[in-house]
Design a protein around this nucleic acid. Sequence first.
DNA 1: ACAATACTTGCACGATGGTGCAAGCGATTC
DNA 2: GAATCGCTTGCACCATCGTGCAAGTATTGT
Lengths: 151, 151
Amino acid sequence: MQLQAGRPQTPAQAVCRPGAVDRLLDPVFFRAMAEPTRARVLACLIKCARPCSVTEVAECCSVDFSVVTRHLATLARAGVLRSSKQGRVVWYEVDAAALERRFVALAQVVRESVESRGSAGAACGPGACCSGARGPGACCAEEGESGASGS
Amino acid sequence: MQLQAGRPQTPAQAVCRPGAVDRLLDPVFFRAMAEPTRARVLACLIKCARPCSVTEVAECCSVDFSVVTRHLATLARAGVLRSSKQGRVVWYEVDAAALERRFVALAQVVRESVESRGSAGAACGPGACCSGARGPGACCAEEGESGASGS
DNA sequence: ACAATACTTGCACGATGGTGCAAGCGATTC
DNA sequence: GAATCGCTTGCACCATCGTGCAAGTATTGT
């Protein structure tokens, strides 16, 4: 069987097949937006669609100023925001291009997964297949491809 | 001024303009994917592109079986997975349609934000405008803690 | 030089959440 | 009916993280 070529038959196989989805499901990225205050900050910056200072952003949420600073830094570290310093003012802005690209890529990966359902060999389903190829280390023994797909 | 009609000028104004972005930046959804183990589980399910049992999923990560159960339940609660019980086996499957729709909508919201940059009134930027319309409560009474209006 | 503004960082505290172990529950098999 | 399988839930532990306060840094204004 051409296991390596097609779609992984089990999660245990899937985990050792590096793909775009692994890079896209970056916990740092999702964690950045998972916090309610940060989500609110990000929503405000998206709506404003312009660079905003920390002071401005702080006015949209009821937490301490220092907290806003940290949240903005977190979002910037995750690649969601970009910052630029002008004098003593720091302007934070949504990195819209990168953000949109990321969401589009995520949507694409999910869509491709759906499209592969009927094409890659056996039509798997509940109890239909993959019932015998289990066991830890059933696929990860070899090196596979050291595919550190460059970012 | 057509503040309510156009794009909010400040984050303080933006926070009281409910829009699609507020619903899409759902912390529950993003938190579900923000955890490394859950991200790995989700990636495996996307790659497999078929319903998988809890036992199968547990083989792709090195945590306790009970932990996998909880992670899968969390992802299902967030609308990322769907589950169906067949006998004593529970099948978890990526809700690909909903997931793709969500990412597409997020990309769309970000894109629309970019497209509105030059259209809605003044061309805002660092120090270009919005320097005088500041101050807490400039647009709405208060929306944070006392605001039990919206859910 | 001094003060004010804009922001960052150190610190402590409390809440949240991920984890493993063990017990429990429903469905299947013998 | 008893044993087994597949999964869920209760519990305790620990790490992480969000938060506010206070001090510190960098830049601008007087």
